[in-house]
Amino acid sequence: MARPRKYNVNIPGLSCYTDARTKKVYWRYKHPFTGKFHGLGDNEEEAKAIAIEANSRLAEQKMKQMFTIKERISTKIGMSITVTSWLDKYLMIQKERLKAAEIKLNTFKQKTAPIETFRRECGSMELQSVGAKDIAAIIEQYKDKGQRRMAQVVRMVLVDVYKEAQHAGEVSPGYNPAMATRKPVNKVQRERFDLEEWQVIFKAAESAQKYVQNSMLLAVATGQRLGDISRMKFSDIWDDHLHVEQEKTGMKLAIPLSLRCDALDISLRDIINRCRDMIVSPYILHIHHTTGIAKRGGKVSAASITSSFSQVRDRSGLKWTEGTPPTFHEQRSLSERLYRAQGIDTQKLLGHKNQQMTDRYNDDRGKDWVVLAI
């Protein structure tokens, strides 16, 4: 069973031989660890492909074993785990926290981009050797691009990465280079609505799908966030209340249908009745006309609501010269200001844990004049 002379095989582990009885050439692969031969048949191209794939997988397996051994050695002699290895473990911890409902899905998703940036910039470094200067350089990348809010998120996530590393004993107690960096300042440039501007946009929405005006009414009447408004169902209404479990905070609110916004001269019950039309749908906000990606009666996504609102706002004729135009979310601030003037407990309505957060929504960012009483 000598190897045929015309075959020049240069793939490790792969060889061929001629069967003395049939005179056919057969291929085989020798496992580098066990030394056993595995028959691969008489198809040369197929045999080569299998051998290449086998070598690739074995090499990958060997690399993983080497990394595992390296980590064990590092731990025993007091060396720090690498950033990449810890980030893999960190993500597993976050998935477990998500599964246990300790964090929300959006919180989990928010961590992805900062983690991958940290992996790309410092992945081969030892976790304990990363300094504040390394973290600051990453944050500066986002600030230079004008993405100050993202810079805040990156710092916040990396602070948590090192907190978890402390809990796991991978770094010294108190070691957190991200915490040592300066917090990026992100001054909000977006303008607020006043009631008159909101009414102009609402009027311009008459030519849009019916859900656009309905979404605006729900936003001001309930003071809830975009995602929560998108998920509202008719089945959430019982005992004469609209029940909302806030996606961001988990806060459970029961809003009376009798709640009336005096400035709009409309109650939540009136708005719900307006949303009940001839279209059969479980969702309070629903599609009225079938399109290529949306079916009549289907849920209106948060992205569709904010996109439709922006289109209506831009064609309303209103201009904002001091900052960027207000988004759909700014109706939450308008709602807070209108209801506070009525004497409604806006902290409970908005679902905030403290009054300080609610007061931020009450800030009109210089929209109105301060009247001196004499």
Rank of each mutant, 00 (worst) to 15 (best):
A54G: 02
F118T: 14
M357T: 10
Y339L: 10
I77R: 12
T18P: 05
T107G: 00
N362C: 09
I374P: 06
Q110H: 04
G343I: 05
K24W: 00
G317Y: 02
G223C: 06
G146H: 05
F67Y: 13
G317P: 09
S74K: 11
A180S: 12
T82K: 06
N176Q: 10
K36D: 04
Q213C: 06
K187W: 02
Q355T: 14
R5I: 06
K111N: 11
R57C: 06
C122Q: 12
T117C: 09
A219R: 04
E196T: 08
A219C: 10
I81H: 00
I344M: 14
D134C: 05
C261R: 03
I271E: 03
Q342H: 02
P4M: 02
E164Y: 05
V153Y: 01
V171E: 08
R5V: 07
N176S: 13
E140R: 10
C275P: 09
A20I: 08
A204G: 05
D277A: 04
E322T: 14
K23N: 13
N362D: 13
S74R: 13
D88T: 05
F108Y: 15
M156H: 06
G366H: 12
L226R: 15
T107K: 00
Q141K: 14
L350I: 08
A219W: 02
F33W: 07
K163M: 08
D359F: 09
I73T: 07
S80M: 02
M125G: 03
I103R: 00
R225H: 05
T34A: 04
A302Y: 01
K6R: 10
I293H: 04
I135P: 13
W198M: 13
S56C: 06
S281Q: 06
V185C: 05
G223H: 02
S15E: 10
I139W: 01
P326R: 02
D134I: 08
A205N: 03
F118H: 11
